[in-house]
């Protein structure tokens, strides 16, 4: 549902500002903070950075509220604000540009690279993820993704948005979203199939249901 824009003025110090803050904007925060925190945590991989991103997202939403046209869902609008804020915050911390992922680097070169070297046979994804080691390996793989690829993977495969919605959030057409998503998935797959992980997991296999 689109927020009620009429209560907001362009001047935060105007009398209606506090009404807006304690009314519609507060409601917007309450309705979406959990989704935005989940998204922020998935992007950042740690609690404090996720909280910073949520704070930045809602402050930017407050400032940009006058320009929200209501032709997108509020959640999509907030995802876009969070995505931009995330890219800006990370750019400040680390100046390096994102590297591009090419399909060639994901073509297996030996027999062992075709399968996942992780012990999940016969387990549902939920059961497999009860293994702390596996969760950590997956999280590390996602964290290693160049940020523009991680953004698309998180939005599409973790937040469950459509390719079209992801495109409107990150400013790409559907074809480009799908291409980026495929490379991101191949990257994570390759990380999960990397040699050395199986040994590490197998040694800890009895801690699966700790």
């Amino acid at each position: 549902m689109a927020p009620q824009k009429k209560t907001r003025t362009a001047h935060p110090d105007a009398p209606t500002s506090s009404t807006f803050l304690s009314g519609p904007f507060d409601q917007l925060y309450r309705d979406h903070v959990d989704v935005m925190y989940r998204f922020a945590y998935r992007l950042c991989g740690e609690v404090e950075a996720a909280k910073d991103l949520v704070q930045e997202t809602f402050l930017n939403a407050y400032r940009a509220y006058d320009r929200f046209r209501g032709d997108a869902q509020v959640s999509t609008w907030l995802y876009a604000i969070a995505s931009h804020a995330c890219l800006r915050m990370r750019r400040k911390r680390k100046g390096e540009p994102d590297r591009e992922l090419s399909l060639e680097e994901f073509v297996p070169t030996s027999e062992g690279e075709f399968a996942l070297q992780i012990p999940i046979e016969g387990l549902s994804p939920q059961e497999a993820l009860e293994n702390k080691e596996l969760r950590q390996i997956l999280d590390r793989a996602i964290a290693k993704l160049p940020r523009k690829y991680r953004m698309v993977l998180v939005l599409r495969d973790m937040e469950g948005l459509s390719a079209k919605e992801v495109g409107s959030i990150v400013g790409l057409n559907e074809r480009a979203v799908k291409s980026r998503l495929h490379r991101a998935r191949l990257f994570v797959r390759k990380e999960l199939s990397a040699k050395g992980l199986a040994g590490e997991l197998n040694r800890n296999v009895h801690t699966r249901l700790e």
Binding site: V33, R38, F114, I120, L153, D157, R185
Partner: peptide
């Protein structure tokens, strides 16, 4: 292996606030 990778991503729980 790609299918399993996608499924793991889709089901990875995230901590709540």
């Amino acid at each position: 292996s790609l299918r399993h990778t996608v499924q793991l991503c889709q089901h990875r729980p995230s901590p709540s606030l």
